[in-house]
Design a protein around this nucleic acid. Structure first.
Length: 289
DNA sequence: AAGGGAGTCAACCGCTTTGAT
DNA sequence: CATCAAAGCGGTTGACTCCCT
């Protein structure tokens, strides 16, 4: 890849020192240098660190690479159902405060959450031809997507317990009950420690969370690994189904579980939004605008 | 099999905030 | 208190990959 192409064509290249600065994707060798240097000397100031480590990178670039990719506690791979739920909940509170949101998702970076939001959540808003910040879309998230996620989380956790999960999550209060304990749990202060106990990580997979998690960390921490991107998940759609009460969209009165139950696979890996849903929701959004 | 479009995500940019002097 | 450098943050870009035709 022509890493220097971008910088050389940019408007602000001049000094020979700046010309030497490398940009673009990091190489394995660079990763090694950075990891080794930090493991021996600690972090310190990023600009001097970059220089001392023999990296022809800006301090900024080194910091970003470390925080988003190389640091040992970074967690990669699919965003779990609970993480999705948390992101939705926290975003509704704080908006695009990605770093703040990331504090509640141990091991996840603000960049990752931001990408998730932009690529997955905003996509659905776009498909529905409504603004991601509109009340309509927020209602959709609140009354459709989030209860859907709660349902799926319950299904995933009770699959092994064979406990009943059919307690209807038909009110907003139910979502809050599901969410609030998490929020109180995952304060920024204890986020890193809760990552270890993995109390957030209800995975769809029945395999031990902690095993998965730590395997993932060690694999990703190793700069020799294949640099593959995290597994591409097919995301759960925000909109599972709907119930038209004949008077516009009163999401609060929807019988959510009835339709969702028919989805049935519980693996969180396919898109729940079908063509009819989209047609209906698009109609509603356009009508209400 | 090839080409094009869409989706994803690592990395950069530029502005703001914070901390040191 | 003022200034400057570093760090932090959110927005944006562009390369890569996947999927569909």
């Amino acid at each position: 890849m022509d890493v220097k192409a971008r910088s050389s064509s940019g408007p602000n290249m001049v000094s020979t020192e700046e010309e030497d600065l490398k940009r673009g994707p990091w190489t394995i060798e660079e990763d090694f240098k950075l990891i080794n240097y930090i493991s021996i000397h600690g972090k310190g100031r990023w600009n001097s660190l970059a220089h001392s480590a023999g990296l022809k990178r800006t301090g900024k670039s080194c910091r970003l690479r470390w925080l988003n990719y190389l640091r040992p506690d970074v967690r990669r791979g699919n965003i779990t159902l609970e993480e999705q739920l948390l992101i939705l909940q926290l975003h509704s509170r704080w908006g695009n405060r990605w770093s703040k949101i990331a504090q509640f998702l141990p091991g996840r970076t603000d960049n990752e959450i931001k990408n998730y939001w932009r690529t997955r959540v905003q996509k659905h808003a776009k498909q529905l031809k409504c603004d991601v910040n509109s009340k309509e879309f927020k209602d959709t998230m609140r009354y459709l997507w989030m209860p859907r996620l709660v349902e799926r989380i319950q299904a995933a956790t009770t699959t092994t317990n064979t406990a009943s999960t059919s307690a209807a999550m038909t009110s907003n209060a139910s979502i809050e009950q599901m969410m609030l304990p998490n929020l109180s749990y995952y304060t920024p202060d204890n986020a890193s420690t809760t990552a270890s106990s993995d109390s957030i990580g209800t995975q769809v997979s029945p395999i031990s969370d902690s095993i998965d998690y730590y395997n993932g960390v060690s694999t990703n921490y190793n700069p020799n690994h294949d640099y593959l991107q995290a597994n591409h998940e097919s995301l759960i759609s925000p909109i599972g189904s709907y119930c038209n009460n004949g008077d516009g969209m009163d999401f609060g009165l929807m019988e959510l579980n009835h339709h969702w139950a028919s989805d049935g696979d519980g693996d969180g890996s396919h898109n729940l939004l079908n063509a009819e849903d989209f047609f209906f929701l698009q109609h509603q959004f356009n009508f209400n605008m």
